[in-house]
Amino acid sequence: MKIIACVRQTPDTETVVKIAGDGKSIETDGIKYIIGPYDEYSLEAAVQLKDETSGNVTALSLGPSRVGEALRASLARGADSAVHINTDGAETDDALVVASALAEQIKKMDYDVVITSTKGSDSDRGAVGPMLAELLGLPYIGLVSEIACSDGKFNCKRQVEGGVTESFTVSTPAVICCEQGVRGQARYPSLMQIMKAKKKKIEVVDFASLGVDGGLAKLELESLEYPPERPPGRIIDGDSLDAKLDELIRLLKEEAKVL
């Protein structure tokens, strides 16, 4: 299988987020960027699937120059090649702008399947995968928690609401969005893989060359705020474990009214 794995570079999940002075963006000073934690899992799935099918994986990412690091890391984790849509100086916050640029680039590439992940851990949108499918005119399956390939088709399972497991067969070409853990933990690259990845070339495509209409950006960010702080709770006192638990149950019934 020829696989395109979409990878997004996001702030480290341990980042303490500070809203910048403009009230519309976050302070980027001191932020460490990583491969999106959700994309780590989908990239792992892509690499395992290419090994099982003697295929190849191209990691594809959109963003400013720093995104090159995420692609380098993707190469170390087993991608064979990488394409970077460089957005330096361009406004590319909107999901449809991102999806349109990715779609324009993907149209020029040779592939069987595009693999995306649940969401970017920064934007928390989860929108680009299905948008990409629509723009490419491809079938889409979201939030897959199991994936295997046989006879040129994918067998996928996913957990949907109500504790139901759905099974699908997916013919290529298609866009498949993988949940976290779809193929277990993402691998840590060996030193050897990191060294090898340094020698591989990353193809850089200028965002402007893809001809994406900036007018597609229709979601306007007005302001960012911190979520309201939760009022402090209390530690339940009591002479014994029994007394504490009885008081807890009383509070759950009478005060919180959740029992």
């Binding site: 934007s123 928390d124 979601l219 306007e220 302001s223 911190y226 979520p227």
Partner: peptide, 14 residues
């Protein structure tokens, strides 16, 4: 929410 709810975004859908 964005960034896993570390911030809330007020948005306008044009």
């Amino acid at each position: 929410p964005m960034l896993a709810g570390k911030v809330l975004a007020k948005v306008k859908l044009n």
